[in-house]
Nucleic acid binder design. Structure first.
Lengths: 164, 164
DNA sequence: GCATCTATACTCGGATAAGCGATGTCCGAGTACTGGAGG
DNA sequence: CCTCCAGTACTCGGACATCGCTTATCCGAGTATAGATGC
């Protein structure tokens, strides 16, 4: 029961792409730059970003001056979107319907909905997902601006300098 | 991001122990019986039940007529207790503080609390845990009694018959 | 000087290995019962 | 008939294998740029 490392990387990277976007419009950042920012393994980060592209969160351009950029605005991306893109849509608690193999078990019944324990776990899972979907990356960005006011510009500068 | 199989087994087994308890007082159920009820691998279920014993949820007795029984009443056990006993106390999203390795990163700062992304994820984790702690196994038991009224007695009978 | 073509360097994308935790299994330590022997 | 004792069967508990997924890496396909060449 541990969330993949990639989720954290993806969240931070999307925010970084947000800062970059504000700078110049067409600026796409290649994996190498994004990975260097946090000293992450570039090839593996690339793998995660591919998942975000498949989910329609990022768009990618190959070739020189290419890289990744946001496919939607930050206020149209929730943390849940990122989690689902990386981890998949499956719930944390996957009911394997063991009641089916117990006495009185019915092969035709869907115990994922009938089992009361499964219901309780699903309710908790829903609470988690709701919390993750209750705010957007734009909300987090705004909070960063208010809390660490110098940080956004510093990040923009870093990517600007790294470019040359 | 998947919950261990053992959580589901443990939840169902604790409920079963609840039914058994209502029958005769000193009745302890051995792993073999509890596993046979759902056709689970006995040795592995045993491993999970050991974790529940360490957590103080069950108590165990070795030797003939031994086995596991509830160490507390069902209304003093929440699904969260079971999850923590099996999975451990760690959050699903473990912030590895990648900001520390970024530009402007400070080795003295604890980014698990300072990082706004980490805060968002922790809030979601808290929502999940609150949902899991908001009801007890007694609540679930009562709901089973109301929804599947014949099921409790059938379960008790099964364990009773299996005993001889 | 300008257009075109070719070579080049850079990027993503998916196919391919390694490491670690969840899953699954086994045997030893300890305990209560059962049967028999002795008083 | 009662008591004591030894053997036995049963249970948990932790140590030992196996599997799958997360982690990590590499190379090929495609593209825009830069430079050279011809007009």
């Amino acid at each position: 029961m541990k969330l993949s490392q990639g989720v954290e990387w993806a969240l931070h990277t999307c925010l970084n792409l947000g800062w970059i976007e504000e700078e110049g419009e067409g600026a796409a950042a290649p994996t190498a730059r994004l990975a260097a920012f946090y000293d992450l393994p570039p090839a593996y980060l690339n793998k995660q970003l591919q998942a975000l592209v498949r989910a329609g969160i990022l768009s990618s351009t190959p070739g020189p001056r290419g890289g990744f950029r946001l496919a939607r605005r930050l206020d149209e991306i929730t943390p849940l979107d990122i989690v689902v893109a990386i981890e998949g849509r499956a719930e944390a608690f996957e009911c394997v319907q063991i009641l089916r193999d117990g006495p009185g078990g019915d092969a035709a019944t869907d115990y994922r909905s009938a089992c009361l324990i499964s219901q309780t776990m699903s309710k908790a899972d829903l609470a988690w997902r709701n919390a993750l979907a209750s705010e957007t990356l734009a909300d987090i960005r705004d909070r960063v601006v208010r809390t660490y006011s110098q940080s956004p510009q510093a990040t923009r500068d870093w990517f600007q300098n790294a470019r040359r």
